[in-house]
Amino acid sequence: MSYTAWILLTASLVGLTCGLVGTLLILRRMAMMADAISHTVLLGIVIAFLATRSLHGIHMLVGAALAGLLTAFLVQWLHARGVREDASMGVVFTTLFAIGVILIATQVGNAHLDVEHALMGEIIFIPFNVTQLPVVGEVPLATLTLLIVTILVIALILLFYKEWKITSFDPALAASLGIPVGLMHYLFMTMVSVTAVASFDAVGAIMVVAMLITPAAAAYLWTDQLRIMFVLSGLFGVLAAFIGYYTAVWLDTSVSGSMAFATGLIFLVSILLSPKYGLLGKRLRPAQGEVK
């Protein structure tokens, strides 16, 4: 495959996974939790690096998953002790992130782990770091990791589809039916962390938030069906990857920044034009009116 094809494939995988996970983030009203986790994942990576002195896939994934779980747990813990949820999120993720940055600045040095790289991502370097696979041949490491994570995410969503639905819509009923709401919550937080870290190389810690939230929010304006929202959100993510890449080539600028910006454009088009919940759509069908 060509250099461009690898980049497009990687970016599309980011868009697809983030779009799928993002749908649940929006419906569970945990959009800012994505912001929190994507930041604290940095601490997980740094600690994994300090412990193993390697920057390879599996260590990073485990470190990130643990950091994400720690964030979710601490936010919940503080919240249970009377701190409002948004405030406790703000306290937890900024603190963990600050510790991560300090560790990088004082312990790691710029040679191995670059803060700016982790924050902005550098998708254009991805095709250079390859690994050898049987049959397929050379595959960029980051792309392979993303592919595995994507498959994992799709499998988890399909396997527990009805559990995701009920714990998102009505957690109290779910708990009374004996569905482990807390367990599902932490499983989901793990999914968000792993998705965030797998997307790190490509888009970095902050732009991954755009990939997670914005395509799903746009999809939310087009449909009333969960299945379709999943599909649309994934598609929007891939679309943003393509638009972003070609915009970046055209303007000769950052691919990850352009991808994040492209998700914003898709949302803008949706909020204006969606026939169901867009501004224009509403204006065109005034007869239907707004229910509530």
Binding site: A34, D35, M207, V209, A210, T214, A217, S256, A260, F261
Partner: peptide
């Protein structure tokens, strides 16, 4: 969701 979107999309534009 609105905050998360503005935060990350504007930041993306800033990086561009």
């Amino acid at each position: 969701a609105a905050m998360g979107m503005i935060l990350s999309v504007f930041f993306g534009l800033g990086i561009m």
